[in-house]
């Protein structure tokens, strides 16, 4: 599966990339919202994992834009911080498919992604 990860925390971005590549996915990374939007255009990933708080274009705006343009062609998992139920609700209203809150377990994320991959097939 082709996955785009948008996250401004380099540590999380690196570790996610490392793990998901190991799982056999094709990974595209973006360190801010604008880069993410550009790369989504360019690579058309199957799945987007995006942080909510990101420089320049927020995760919410990415959801809005992607869901308007590509409908269900792409799934979106958002990364949030604990205790921001309101933001999660907002993300779902905009069309996010799933969310994971930080701190998160990489293994759990890995499993959730497998589920998305199955659904795609």
């Amino acid at each position: 599966m082709k996955i785009l990860i948008a996250e401004d925390d380099a540590l999380i971005l690196n570790t996610l990339e490392f793990r998901l590549k190991k799982d056999g996915h094709e990974i595209i990374t973006a360190i801010d919202g604008r880069e993410a939007l550009e790369k989504i255009e360019e690579h058309r990933p199957d799945l987007i994992i995006s942080d909510i708080m990101m420089p320049y274009v927020s995760g919410l705006e990415i959801i809005g834009t992607v869901k308007e343009k590509y409908k269900d062609e792409m799934s979106i998992i958002i990364l949030t911080t604990m205790g921001q139920e309101e933001v999660v609700l907002e993300a779902f209203e905009l069309g996010a498919d799933d969310f994971i809150s930080k701190p998160f377990s990489p293994s759990e994320l890995s499993i959730r992604i497998k589920r998305f991959a199955l659904r795609k097939k």
Binding site: I52, M53, T80, T81, G83, Q84, E85, E86, V87
Partner: peptide
């Protein structure tokens, strides 16, 4: 600073 960046409180 993350404590308040996204907190509804």
């Amino acid at each position: 600073y993350n404590a308040i960046s996204s907190s509804s409180k």
